[in-house]
Design a protein around this nucleic acid. Structure first.
Length: 604
RNA sequence: GGGGUGUUAGUUAAGUCGGUUAUAACGCCGGCCUGUCACGCCGGAGGCCACGGGUUCGAGUCCCGUACACCCCGCCA
């Protein structure tokens, strides 16, 4: 007797057979996706990663096989041999294989299955907590199978693309020396070096620059990075980056290479031709219009900066605005068209929403037929001289609503940025995944090298110390740091930052000035980055690079709503793995070997 | 660290003003059925209402706390 796997090898996948295969003897392996037992005949939907094929077991043809088939239950893992037969009148148009079925002559149950904790179906509304606990079952579902196959495709295309373009795939260490600043690191105690710790690399940044200095010219890596920061919908503590560095390049060269990759990915994964080049927008413009550096350009609802206008009118009769401007804050407004038709209750809800982000409130004004403001805390006192220009710059028409934020710049920007997206979702301005015109790529360029920290009233580096300032801004490095812009760039898609990079500082002289401006002493610089500073003094080529967030790319390519849906084994918001229980306890012996002592005391 | 939402059979949900034995669908178990594909029909099992306090004659329901999950702010050069 012939046995499955040893003698009977798989001939086809469950998504493969068509009417061209009618008459063939086939062997399929897979899982019981569904069963319909009609007594004399049992119908099974057999599933593997490629699809589903209907298998029929008939009592009067093979009573012994039929008897086994009666025992089949959902998610049993089986092998089937049989003949491909036309379904005749009974075609199932919903199935790729719906024109045929397999009439089984042999069946082996490799493994039975207990009742699964949730159904293995395409559309499942099981709590995510449960899905993550049984992730191996969640991953059996077709949508996640498709997503991970897309992810594999992205890996494959990326490797081909860079290899074809003269890039070398080179590795970098995960266990590195901790350098302060930037993201919080995960620490790994060193058993061989008591009291010392490795850090898990938050990015290969310094090593890829050293590859350039070593003369490797063009580097790429699809690499895991680790950051011990709080999680979000689009942030996991370990994530994958498409990391790139190139020698003898300027910003445009990097953009060309990356646009080439992105276009290839969209073409090969979605069959979409993206227009090139991608548009660019200065950082300052993005902050003014959208309140952040990752604007979603699929809809308008831009912000208007009213700070200067308010200042010109001495507050325009509104003490709150005057006060905000006088204290160095900013004033922003946004028009909500009358068609949004918000009720008083809904606007109150919006106010609660923005208060959750640190806003003091949500000042608003409804524009009347004559341009006057109603339903507004400003209505009584605002001067027409200021009101009219505000109506004009916001484009507010009678019936429209103007929403205001004022005060500390960072809060105003954050609140208005989130409000803009929130309102767009509420009013249906964001197109469904799969409809046309939804790929709005953008390069955000020319950010300042320093950002003003209102709390400490000092200029703080906005980026790492190896970003190259604009040559024409160098004179201001010591005198007016806020005027120094740099060769840094972010690639943005539909409101997500999917990549960021910079042209690096390769000139040791300028490097020294930047360190000084950043308040990093020569000793400190030597301590932290001595090896890189040495390297820069020994014939470092001009170079620059970028890193793309691979998980976010896949998330956007597949229309997934969360990064957790494109990561096979994701962590929860508290950084735990609900399936394995990580992170777990260490026993006393392990800790002693590592010279580590926990000070943690569980709450009573 | 802060704000918000949620937690009821295996799963997804309902549960009114605080009041008798907590419902339904799917799944599961048993039986019947040869053209189903969300198969159908008959029968059955299945509950610490997340956990801990409190209010009350009486709590799934009201209050407080805790845990967990999710969303956001801070954080993420």
């Amino acid at each position: 007797m012939q046995r499955f796997i040893t003698d009977l090898k798989r001939t086809h996948s469950c998504g493969q057979l068509t009417k061209a295969d009618i008459g063939k003897e086939v062997v399929l392996f897979g899982w019981v996706n569904n069963r319909r037992d009609h007594g004399g005949a049992v119908f099974i939907d057999l599933r593997d990663r490629e699809g589903v094929t209907q298998v029929v077991f008939e009592e009067d043809v093979r009573p012994d096989v039929h008897e086994t088939a009666e025992k089949l239950r959902l998610e049993y893992c089986v092998g089937v041999r049989g003949k491909v037969v036309s379904r005749g009148e009974n075609v199932n148009p919903k199935l790729k294989t719906g024109e045929i079925e397999v009439h089984a002559s042999d069946l082996e149950i490799f493994n039975r299955s207990e009742a699964t904790p949730f159904p293995i179906e395409d559309q499942v509304d099981t709590a995510e907590e449960k899905r993550l606990q049984y992730r191996f079952l969640d991953l059996r579902r077709a949508p996640l199978q498709r997503t991970l196959m897309t992810r594999a495709r992205v890996n494959h295309v990326t490797r081909n693309y860079f290899t074809e373009n003269g890039f070398l795939e080179l590795e970098t260490p995960f266990m590195v020396k901790y350098t302060p600043g930037g993201a919080r690191n995960f620490l790994v105690p060193s058993r061989l070096n008591p009291g010392k710790f490795y850090a898990l690399a938050e990015s290969p940044q310094l090593f890829k620059q050293l590859y350039m200095i070593a003369g490797f010219d063009r580097y790429f890596q699809i690499v895991r990075c680790f950051r011990d920061e709080d999680l979000r919908l689009d942030r996991q503590p370990e994530f994958t980056q498409i990391d790139v560095e190139m020698s003898f390049v300027e910003q445009n060269d990097i953009f060309g290479v990356i646009e080439g990759l992105v276009c290839r990915l969209w073409k090969e994964v979605l069959g979409v031709e993206l227009p090139r080049p991608f548009p660019r927008m200065p950082f300052d413009e993005s902050m003014a219009k959208y309140g952040n550096d990752k604007p979603d350009l699929r809809f308008g609802m831009e912000h208007q900066l009213l700070t200067d206008l308010v200042r010109q009118h001495g507050g325009g009769g509104v003490p709150l605005l005057q006060d905000a401007v006088a204290k160095g804050g900013i004033v922003k407004a946004m028009r909500v068209p009358a068609s949004a038709n918000f009720s008083r209750t809904e606007i109150d809800k919006l106010e609660e929403y923005v208060k959750g982000m640190g806003a003091k409130g949500l000042a608003r004004a409804k524009v009347a037929e004559n341009g006057e403001w109603t339903q507004s805390p400003f209505a009584k006192t605002v001067t027409p001289e200021m009101r009219l220009p505000i109506n004009q710059v916001t484009g507010a028409q009678p019936g429209d609503l103007i929403l205001f934020q004022f005060g500390k710049a960072s809060t105003v920007h954050t609140v208005m940025a989130n409000l803009r997206v929130h309102l767009a979702k509420r009013t249906g301005l964001i197109p469904e995944f799969g409809s046309g015109g939804q790929w709005r790529f953008l390069w955000v360029v020319d950010p300042p090298l320093f950002e003003y920290d209102e709390d400490s009233a000092t200029w703080q580096p906005a980026h790492h110390a190896f970003t190259r300032p604009r040559d024409q801004d160098l004179p201001f490095l010591e005198t007016d740091p806020g005027r120094v812009y740099c060769w840094r760039y972010d690639l943005v898609l539909n409101g997500f930052e999917i990549g960021g990079g910079s042209i690096r500082l390769h000139d040791p002289e300028v490097q020294a000035r930047v360190f000084k401006a950043m308040g990093i002493s020569a000793e400190e610089a030597r301590n932290k980055f001595g090896f890189l500073l040495d390297a820069l003094r020994m014939g470092a080529p001009p170079h620059g690079g970028i890193a793309l967030g691979m998980d976010r790319l896949v998330m956007l390519l597949t229309g997934a709503e969360s990064l957790r849906d494109v990561v096979a084994w994701p962590k929860t918001q508290k950084g735990t793995d609900l399936m394995t229980g990580a992170p777990g306890d260490a026993d006393a012996r392990q800790l002693r070997d590592l010279y580590v002592k926990s000070t943690y005391e569980p709450a009573k």
